[in-house]
């Protein structure tokens, strides 16, 4: 059991499985006896659904919008194995400023002394994938989180988004911002997927902390509105999430990533495209296939 609260931010392209991964990490750690808080930092406010059921949880910003004093119990609910679930929320799509919203929600949680009151071992921030403005970078700035993990599949757009996140991390790291704990490779299907992500990690001087193959167990649990840990506690995927959770808690090493330039990233991707075309998408590919 950790002495100090660890604050972990999880980023990645929209739809890549951040919330699924984060919720399963939360569930796995809670199942192992840790006190866990999961904070959804996405205006969609659906990060913690599989932990707490489909019941409506007012977001921090919903309550703020209503005015008056906000209490911790109004904006949090205890989910699977005691995970404290919170959704920052945001404005109606197309209006207002979601970045400021994240900023304001996190400030409010600090004002409410959330961490002093709940005394968690680990706090997971599930953050909107595209860091389009300063507000979404708040979780990686100095003092808020200890490490960042980036979820990515082997699809180019996911890699592209991960590379952009590396740029944000690289920008804030010199002034004390959080560094990268590693890449969580998610939704892997094709044989080339793993070596491709491994190679991206090599190119950017980072590392992959866990490989999560695409699985019907995950899809089914999602459809049932639960985590894999809850729905299929003895499945192979539950074991993968448990291992990932333990790695995150136990290994506090981190690096400053070296993102590729736009053209370098394109060239690198093209080489992989050529390779897959040449060998066939189903052919086994050795790690470090592209020099």
């Amino acid at each position: 059991m950790t002495k100090r609260t660890q604050h972990i931010a999880i980023y990645g392209k929209g739809g890549i499985g951040k919330s699924t991964t984060t919720s399963n990490i939360a569930a796995a750690l809670a199942d192992a006896g840790y006190r866990v808080v999961q904070i959804g930092c996405d205006p969609k406010a659906d990060s913690t659904v599989t932990l707490r059921g489909v019941n409506y949880l007012p977001t921090v910003l919903d309550r703020t919008r209503e005015g008056g004093r906000v209490h911790l119990e109004d904006i949090s609910v205890v989910g699977f194995r005691g995970v404290l679930c919170i959704e920052a929320g945001g404005p109606v799509p197309g209006v207002g400023c979601a970045g400021r919203g994240i900023n304001a929600a996190i400030s409010l949680l600090q004002d409410l002394h959330l961490f002093e009151e709940f005394k968690p071992d680990i706090v997971l921030y599930d953050v909107l994938g595209d860091v389009v403005c300063g507000g979404f970078a708040v979780p990686i700035r100095e003092g808020l989180t200890d490490r960042v993990y980036v979820v990515s599949s082997s699809d180019f757009m996911a890699i592209y988004a991960a590379n952009n996140l590396f740029k944000a991390i690289q920008k804030y790291a010199p002034s004390g911002g959080a560094k990268l704990g590693g890449i969580i490779a998610n939704g892997l299907i094709a044989p080339y997927a793993r070596p491709l992500i491994d190679d991206f990690a090599v190119q950017t001087e980072t590392r992959v902390v866990q490989y999560i193959p695409r699985s019907s167990t995950v899809a089914q649990a999602e459809l049932h509105g639960t985590t894999v840990i809850e729905a299929a506690p003895d499945s192979a995927h539950a074991a993968i999430y448990r291992e990932l959770g333990e790695k995150i808690v136990a290994d506090d090493s981190s690096v400053v990533p070296q993102p590729l330039g736009v053209n370098d990233l394109r060239d690198w991707a093209r080489q992989w495209g050529d390779l897959i075309l040449r060998e066939g998408a189903d052919a086994p590919v050795p790690i470090r296939a592209v020099a």
Binding site: C97, G99, R100, N103, C133, G134, G135, F136, A137, V138, R141, E142, G143, Y172, S175, G176, G177
Partner: peptide, 14 residues
């Protein structure tokens, strides 16, 4: 700067 999210504490730290 509060809306756009300038990292003011980082500048102060520098």
């Amino acid at each position: 700067p509060e809306v756009i999210g300038d990292d003011v504490p980082a500048m102060v730290k520098e």
